[in-house]
Design a protein around this nucleic acid. Structure first.
Lengths: 203, 203
DNA sequence: AATTCTATTTCGTCA
DNA sequence: TGACGAAGTAGAATT
């Protein structure tokens, strides 16, 4: 039973799909043989009632092997690493994708308002801040703009150019970026991964 | 962890789908900080390796709240009740679906070689054995044939006719049934359920 | 918020 | 056993 009232009935094998279940939100009512007339051999009956619909899951428990409950606190949610992070790693490794003579300064360059995805140097030695997104939207351009304002106040770095790199850039974002003097680069993830994987391929 | 080596990582909410998992068959290797250099705060690392592919799921465990293991024996598998059982209950209640003057003797009439789904009496008082299937296949006809042979040896019941009832009957099964003098009846589950539900409907 | 589309899908059915 | 489609799909991306 999960904190939201959902209940999963699993077998001791097979896939991740339960034999049966009740989706949240739901409430559990436990009945003992003293309260309710249960089938012989049933020590407890669980009635899991969906809060939204009239669906209910009724579980007859014949034997209890173990019982324990733990408050796991607020669910931090699943953070999927691997897509944007991969893209960042690949671009850092293949920084010359952006142009000949580019060199990496560092990934995740921390600033007061957050980390810049990639900080690099172009062929002329000028600093370049790169914002990476899987899909390039206006939000990303705004974010990069804020970083650029901040970085350009640092005399050791200024002047800092911006590059907005994504697998796909929305027309609106492209217009906004150009308006602010930010270059746009469309990345070919498959090609980049191909270059990266070449050494581990069999043929 | 299930008996087949599969591992599910669940959050304390959300649906039945795990945050991450490894499908069976798989093997688990547990590493402690003494054996392997683990990140700070990680007390144990689980490596779940798929037996078929090179996929592996690596889990860093930061805190153990509880740990227990139970041998649940051979998985009896999921038996879905409600479809064939429902059909049997409905037909027993609406036995006249088979013809005017039919009456129920009993459901699940036990014999030495297994239970006959429904035993009834027709308008002429003759005994009728009914085999129910969702989809009528040759197997079902064979099964009913065996029951009929047995039942017809009982002088109190003989002669016993057979009816093969299903929502859908395969042409091959129909031919075989006719050849053995067994009648075929196609059942309309929705219509039968409609009749049954009429009293519990709001309008 | 509603809709469309993908999935380490899983699971059943049919050929 | 493999192909094909449905799922109480779930979950993400898009409108």
């Amino acid at each position: 039973m999960k904190a939201d009232g959902s209940v999963l009935v699993h077998s001791d094998g097979g896939s991740y799909k339960p034999l049966n279940w009740m989706s949240p939100p739901a409430t559990l009512r436990v009945s003992s043989p003293e309260e309710v007339d249960l089938e012989l051999g049933v020590v407890e009956q669980w009635t899991v009632q969906s809060a939204k619909t009239d669906d209910r899951l009724i579980i007859n428990i014949h034997e209890k092997l173990d019982e324990s409950s733990h408050d796991l606190g607020v669910d931090p949610g699943l953070i999927k690493d691997g897509v944007e992070a991969d893209l960042q790693r690949l671009l850092a490794e293949q920084i010359e994708t952006l142009g000949a003579g580019y060199s990496l300064i560092r990934r995740e360059y921390f600033t007061a308002i957050g980390p810049v995805d990639i900080l690099a140097r172009d062929a002329d030695g000028a600093t370049v801040a790169i914002e990476l997104k899987r899909r390039g939207d206006i939000d990303g351009v705004e974010q990069l703009t804020r970083y650029l304002e901040l970085l350009n106040r640092d005399p050791l770095l200024a002047p800092v150019r911006g590059i907005f790199a994504a697998q796909q850039i929305k027309p609106q974002a492209k217009v906004l970026a150009n308006d602010r003097g930010i270059d746009c680069v469309t990345l070919d993830y498959d090609a980049m991964r191909g270059v990266d994987d070449s050494e581990s391929r069999l043929f």
